[in-house]
Each structure stands twice: as structure tokens, then as C-alpha cells.
């Protein structure tokens, strides 16, 4: 930093005796008063408005004079008696987190699956799930559109009164709604998986692949009549569970297979700015403590 600047640490002192500040002026207040009277004149007496106009004009001139050519200033003396106390170095230590090397500021976890893995895992899981569901449709109802229409019943009210024949037929709007809904949810769930897999307890694949789908199924079962009245009477629970498991296993597998990447958050500023390479850095002072 250039030596001639007068900047310092927080609360630091200077040699100077004055600080230059804008000079007090009452013209803004008078101006505000005039403007208010001007408006009040509209609803009371026109005289009030005229008085307001005069005051406003006078205050405008006053304000103008105050800032042109240069804004009026005053010198406020620095009172040495009113100086802040110096900021003390604290004796307190800071508890370190165990994880990570330099790490008391580490953000857990150090390594994660990339978000892209979650995206693709979600898509893969979603595809597996959709394939199984369509297979069910084909086997049980002789139509792959049947499960798609059921899913679309969440958003499309007309399907509530549809007959089985109508549900077996292709319905463009329903297909679109079901496709969008399924893809968005699959991807979002995939991302949640990617983020949370490292945080699961041991046997992450078991959790992600089997337990979570089962919990999810239970959740759906409790509120299904509210979410999707079309599906309530027609759902085949075993198949439903199989489809959920397919999502969990396929999605979980794709994500778990991805190479974990290191989060940069455990790095110091210099490392993140690529001034220092994380692998090559000398051990820090505090690590030797």
C-alpha cells in the first residue's frame, strides 16, 4: 500500500487534528416542508399551496448555494479524548475441526460427487424407473401409456374421470406433463443423492438404493389420495416399490461410480487463487503445533 494514504487499521489513529465533513444545513428540511405544504395545498386551501411553493423555491435556492460551486464543508476536530480503545489480540484459541489438514475452517465433506454425476444418475435412475413402469403397463394393462397417464393425473384434473380405455390411450398433454414432471423430479432427486451420498452412514448404496426409496414409497402412500386421485384406486404397490427401487439402485450406482472431486473449500486463499498448488505446499505453522 502506498505510504501516503491516510488509511489504517480499524480504529487506528492519525496525526491530523481535523476531519472534513459536510456542513450542517437546514435547507433540506425547509425544502421538505415546502414540498409537503405544496401538496397539502391540493387538499386544503390554495393559499397553503402558494406558501408551500414560495418556501420550496427559497429552500431550493438555499440548497443550490450550499452545494455550488463546491459542497460546503466543516472541519470537525478530532477529540483525542474520544478515541476508541485499541483492539486487543484475543487470548482465546479456536477449536479445530479434525477433518482435513489445514482444516479448522474446513467445510465437510472434503470430497464430493460432482453435481453432474447427480444429474446423470438422476436421469439414469429415472429412465430405469420409467422403463419398468412402462413394462408394467404393457404386462398388466397392455399399454405403455397407462402408467404415464396415471402419473399425469397429478396435474391434469380431467384424468380423474377417465375410463380405463382412455387411460390406455395416448394423451399428448398427459405425456408432456408426465415427461416434464418425471425428468425434473428425477434430476432433482439425483442431485440430492449426489450431495448426500458422502454424508450417509456406512453402506451408502444400501441407504440410497433401498432404504430411501422405501421411505419415499411410504411417504407417497400416505398422501397419494391428495397428490394424485387418479392413481389411488389403480396403483399396483409391488410394482410401484420395484420401480422406486430401480431408481434408487440405478441412480445410486451411477453416482457412486463417479470419481469424487475435492472441494476447494479446505484450501487457503493462495491455493484457490492458484498461486500455490495444494499438493506442493509446505506444511503450515499451525499443523506443526
Amino acid at each position: 500500500m502506498a505510504a501516503d494514504t491516510h488509511h489504517g487499521e480499524a480504529g487506528e489513529r492519525t496525526e491530523r487534528t481535523h476531519v472534513i465533513l459536510p456542513a450542517p444545513t437546514s435547507w433540506p428540511m425547509v425544502f421538505a416542508f415546502g414540498v409537503t405544504l405544496l401538496f397539502a395545498g391540493m387538499v386544503t386551501q390554495w393559499v397553503v399551496g402558494v406558501v408551500g411553493l414560495i418556501i420550496t423555491a427559497r429552500a431550493a435556492v438555499g440548497w443550490w448555494r450550499n452545494v455550488i460551486p463546491v459542497e460546503e464543508h466543516e472541519e470537525v476536530p478530532i477529540d483525542p479524548a474520544l478515541r476508541p480503545a485499541p483492539i486487543m489480540v484475543e487470548a482465546r484459541s479456536v477449536v479445530r475441526l479434525a477433518a482435513g489438514e489445514a482444516g479448522h475452517r474446513v467445510r465437510i465433506p472434503e470430497e464430493i460427487h460432482p453435481y453432474s454425476a447427480g444429474f446423470w444418475g438422476g436421469l439414469a435412475g429415472g429412465a430405469a424407473m420409467a422403463a419398468l413402469a412402462c413394462l408394467y403397463g404393457l404386462v398388466a394393462q397392455h399399454s405403455i401409456w397407462y402408467p404415464i397417464n396415471l402419473l399425469a393425473g397429478t396435474v391434469i384434473p380431467d384424468l380423474g374421470n377417465a375410463t380405463v380405455e382412455q387411460l390406455r390411450a395416448f394423451n399428448g398433454l398427459a405425456f408432456f406433463a408426465a415427461l416434464v414432471g418425471h425428468v425434473v423430479i428425477s434430476v432433482l432427486v439425483g442431485i440430492v443423492y449426489a450431495v448426500m451420498l458422502p454424508m450417509f452412514p456406512k453402506y451408502a448404496p444400501f441407504w440410497a438404493g433401498i432404504l430411501v426409496p422405501l421411505i419415499w414409497t411410504g411417504l407417497v402412500a400416505t398422501v397419494l389420495n391428495l397428490i394424485n386421485p387418479v392413481m389411488v384406486g389403480r396403483i399396483n404397490w409391488p410394482w410401484f416399490v420395484v420401480c422406486q427401487l430401480a431408481f434408487g439402485l440405478v441412480g445410486g450406482y451411477v453416482i457412486a461410480r463417479s470419481t469424487k472431486i475435492q472441494t476447494m473449500q479446505s484450501w487457503g486463499l493462495a491455493e484457490r487463487a492458484f498461486i500455490e498448488a495444494p499438493g506442493l505446499k509446505p506444511p503450515r505453522e499451525e499443523d506443526r503445533e
Binding site: M1, E9, P86, I87, V89, A91
Partner: peptide, 15 residues
């Protein structure tokens, strides 16, 4: 103890 922070200047202030 007195304040005795030895702080290197900020990168952007160096520039």
C-alpha cells in the same frame, strides 16, 4: 497486551 497485528497488505490494494 497491545494490538500488534502484523498484516500483509491486501492483494487488490497492492495492485
Amino acid at each position: 497486551m497491545a494490538a500488534s497485528a502484523i498484516v500483509p497488505p491486501s492483494p487488490e490494494l497492492l495492485e
